[in-house]
């Protein structure tokens, strides 16, 4: 023990300990930052432009009204519109692919290779939770109540911390006057199985 105290008095050892401490702190900060930034997407899809063009959420994410997962569009769905935009496909003056915006060139590449776009899901729940979009849409919830106003977002980012407290608070608020509904909505087996 005496030797450790002797060592700690040395300038070099103190400096080394300081560096080690800072490495740990900055590593932790970096890891925390990584959880807070939106994941990297294969194509930097600008949601705001598409929402301003009055395209419905359910056009590209149709699963939300009929199944658990809302779904992410395939390259074919994107190309259904982008393959005939007058801006690029005007028969009088078609724009060559090289002059297209970079992100659209990437899309054209996926279409040409007939390869699905490897979108990275942003809103995810752990494996022991089973979220189902359909009852939420059927209950009349608008997409932006959970996903935020997409007309102000470019690449999708997490607008809401997804945790059980948030789920259950909403479930309780929406079943205040209906005991039958509350039994169903706060039951463990509704989401965890």
């Amino acid at each position: 023990m005496q030797r450790v105290f002797e060592l700690l008095k040395k300038k070099e050892i103190q400096l080394l300990l300081l560096i080690a401490f800072m490495v740990v702190i900055s590593g932790g900060a970096w890891a925390l930052y990584q959880t807070q930034i939106p994941p990297e997407q294969p194509i930097l899809f600008p949601h705001d432009i598409h929402v301003q063009l009055q395209i419905q959420c359910l056009y590209c994410h149709p699963g939300a009204q009929r199944q658990a997962s809302a779904g992410l569009p395939t390259q074919q769905k994107c190309w259904a519109c982008h393959g005939q935009l007058k801006k690029y496909w005007d028969p009088a003056a078609p724009v060559p692919l090289e002059q297209w915006p970079v992100e659209l060139q990437k899309l054209a590449g996926y279409v040409e290779r007939n390869e699905p776009i490897p979108w990275v899901p942003v809103y995810i729940v752990p494996d022991h939770v089973h979220f189902n979009h359909r009852p939420h849409i059927a209950a009349g919830f608008a997409c932006e109540q959970c996903h935020g106003d997409m007309s102000k977002q470019k690449v999708a980012e997490l607008q809401q911390t997804i945790n059980m407290g948030w789920c259950i608070t909403c479930h309780q608020q929406n079943s205040v006057d209906d005991p039958q509904k509350r039994i169903k909505l706060i039951d463990c087996g509704t989401c965890h199985y």
């Binding site: 022991h128 039994i183 169903k184 039951d187 463990c188 087996g189």
Partner: peptide
Amino acid sequence: TVHSQAEQINLQVYN
């Protein structure tokens, strides 16, 4: 392990 009031079965909450 709780009793589900909604489904009247016995649940196991893994988490």
